[in-house]
Computed example of a mutant assay.
Amino acid sequence: MVSVHFSALKKISCCLALSSALLASVTSAQAADNFWQAIQQKGVLRCGAAPAAPYVMRDPKTQQYSGYFAELCRDFAQNVLKVKVQFVDASWDTLVAGLQSDKWDLAMALNQTPERALAIGFSSPAQDYQISFLVNKQNPKVNGLGSKITDYDKEEVTFAVMSGTAQDKALSAVIKKGKIMRMPGNDESRLALMARRADVLVDASDTNHLFALANPDWAKEVLPTPALAKQGVSFGVPRSVSEADLDVLNIYLSQRRATGEIDRLVNQASAQANAAK
């Protein structure tokens, strides 16, 4: 009788443990499937914000956030989820960790990389990051050239790039004939182009776009083909977010891209950043 009693207790304990595990699994799945619903119940969408123009900018006087990713986060919160938006101060070193520890719901303006994808999920890209060329339209050596990298890879063409950067690495892999002038910083690279000691400035497309907008009389931005170091710039999301919930954000972004709204926001943010400088 005693052995039967303990055997029955053991079976009951196993059933209880299994039930608890199944309940926890169901609860976790429900939470993952109701990501936006949980945010709507709280009434606020928290967006992790690490300043970098023109993606995310913060006014030092008012502490208000702007930039095209900030505007997208604000619009998505107010017009899709119908909740308030809260920008949470972050740094580029903490954006991923803060998302994992539930300090914010979305991380703004993260480049898609395989390493980050091991820890978090990504929305579809709001914009594409790539390296671009900036040239002086009045320079006869580059005036009228197309967008192919081979168009610029000539012995008489000099490229200015910040030494040791991703741009330097990408450029060095494709330029076979042209000269590469490696500079210690962005300012030196830009001055080399302005003084015509260099014919092409090589930098991130967003950075070059800002510089081109600030100097419309002579500066021209070229997106080389094939693309150099092209990556999607997206919202980071927790890995637990379901495909159905992720679709909500992806559809929103794809529609904004298709209508040209994101391009308008990029230009607006770029003009604002130049005005601030």
Rank of each mutant, 00 (worst) to 15 (best):
V4S: 07
A8V: 14
L9V: 11
K11I: 13
I12L: 13
I12K: 11
C14M: 13
S20L: 15
A24P: 02
T27C: 12
Q30A: 06
A32V: 01
D33S: 10
G43E: 06
C47F: 06
G48M: 05
A53E: 10
D59Q: 01
G67M: 03
Y68C: 00
E71S: 14
A77L: 06
S91R: 14
W92E: 10
D93V: 12
V96E: 11
A97H: 09
L106Y: 09
N111C: 07
Q112T: 13
E115P: 03
A117S: 15
I120E: 07
A126M: 10
D128L: 12
P140M: 02
G146W: 04
S163H: 11
S163R: 12
D168Q: 02
K169P: 00
K176S: 12
K177Q: 15
G178L: 04
I180F: 06
I180R: 01
M181F: 13
E188Q: 14
A192I: 00
A198C: 01
E221G: 01
P224N: 04
A229H: 10
Q231Y: 08
S242T: 09
D245A: 05
D247F: 11
N250E: 11
Y252V: 08
Q255F: 04
R256D: 03
G260L: 03
I262H: 04
D263F: 04
D263S: 13
R264H: 07
Q268A: 09
A275T: 09
